[in-house]
């Protein structure tokens, strides 16, 4: 059936079953491939997106859940995501890069909620995202760095 999805401020009319997970609708139907498939069971966070600002594992939420809401993916832009990108680049964080879309979205959700997260906040917020390459210590540093960059800009 025909459904309208609003992604990164843009409207997409798509022919899609409403029980299809948002991940696959976004990747295979809409064609935005920055959001990644990692596990399909909300265990790794590679598919992280924001729905009305809430961090969501898109592999485990149906299209119907996203209808009428604002979906935000790695292809989008926000103040916190941009400053995180800058910090990620500054710290040369990614290795293979595959999980980093999800890491950046999870970190965006964290900064949206907590202005200056502690290490414990980072542990709590980022432990649902797996990085098999093991870039955790750089991600942690980059989140702190992003706060620093943001304060400098303020």
């Amino acid at each position: 059936m025909s459904t309208i999805l609003s992604i990164n401020g843009k409207s997409y009319t798509v022919e899609v079953q409403e029980n299809m997970p948002l991940l696959w609708a976004i990747r295979d139907i809409v064609g935005l491939t920055g959001t990644k498939f990692g596990c399909g069971v909300a265990q790794c966070g590679a598919c992280s997106i924001l729905i009305d600002g809430q961090l969501t594992k898109s592999c485990s939420m149906p299209v119907s859940y996203g209808i009428g809401k604002e979906i935000f993916t790695i292809e989008g832009s926000s103040e916190n995501l941009e400053v995180l990108r800058e910090a990620w680049n500054d710290g040369n964080v990614p290795q293979c890069g595959y999980c980093q879309s999800g890491q950046l979205i999870a970190a965006t959700a964290l900064l949206d909620k907590i202005e200056s997260p502690t290490d414990k906040d980072i542990d709590d917020a980022m432990s649902s995202n797996i990085c098999r390459c093991g870039t955790y210590s750089r991600i942690r540093k980059a989140i702190h760095k992003a706060v620093e960059l943001k304060n400098q800009k303020a």
Binding site: T33, G34, I74, R85, W88, N89, P94, G97, Y98, S101
Partner: peptide, 19 residues
């Protein structure tokens, strides 16, 4: 140290993996 030439692709979700 030279940072990865692919950093911007990695941080914008635009690197093309097999999938």
């Amino acid at each position: 140290t030279l940072k990865s030439v692919d950093l911007n692709h990695f941080t914008h979700g635009t690197a093309t993996y097999g999938i």
